[in-house]
Nucleic acid binder design. Structure first.
Length: 135
DNA sequence: GCCAACGTTGGC
DNA sequence: GCCAACGTTGGC
């Protein structure tokens, strides 16, 4: 099983909205690196939901509910289905992520503009620890 | 096929 | 409001 981090501006689509909807189609991603990650996702994989801009923090945990399918007019992009698992008991802010040496190699820090990025097993555990959350 | 110009995104 | 990073576009 793989772990991911997926980002959205809360104004565009928020964690609260996802919980309300009980799941959503994560579409509209128009970046080829992000597409590679979307294609690699398998049902059952887990992902942090990160709020960019105002909040700048991971707020919850999602499960990949369905593998990628074609997205966009010409179908050359990819979308997956996601569903909420549980909120993080404590927000994991970007500040906290940057301050944690064990997260210094986190893909999202390396490629700050990437909206879908992989998270290593060890990094996932550290994030959960910072979020004071158990699955 | 290369690269400069430009647009977009996200953080500060 | 600014700037850095980076993807895309268009001219050559």
């Amino acid at each position: 099983m793989a772990y991911w981090l997926m980002r959205s501006e809360p104004d565009a689509y928020s964690w609260e909205r996802l919980v309300e909807d009980k799941g959503t189609e994560w579409d509209g991603v128009r970046n080829s690196t992000a597409r590679i990650h979307l294609r690699a996702m398998k049902p059952g994989d887990l992902a942090f939901f990160y709020h960019s801009n105002e909040q700048k923090a991971a707020v919850g945990i999602m499960r990949i509910a369905r593998e990628g399918r074609p997205d966009g007019e010409d179908g050359k992009w990819v979308s997956v289905a996601v569903e909420p698992v549980k909120p993080l008991a404590r927000l994991v802010t970007l500040k906290a992520i940057k301050a944690e040496p064990r997260l210094s190699a986190l893909e999202m820090l390396r490629q700050s503009r990437l909206s879908v990025s992989p998270v290593r097993d060890e990094e996932w555990m550290v994030m959960l620890e910072l979020g004071e959350t158990r699955l």
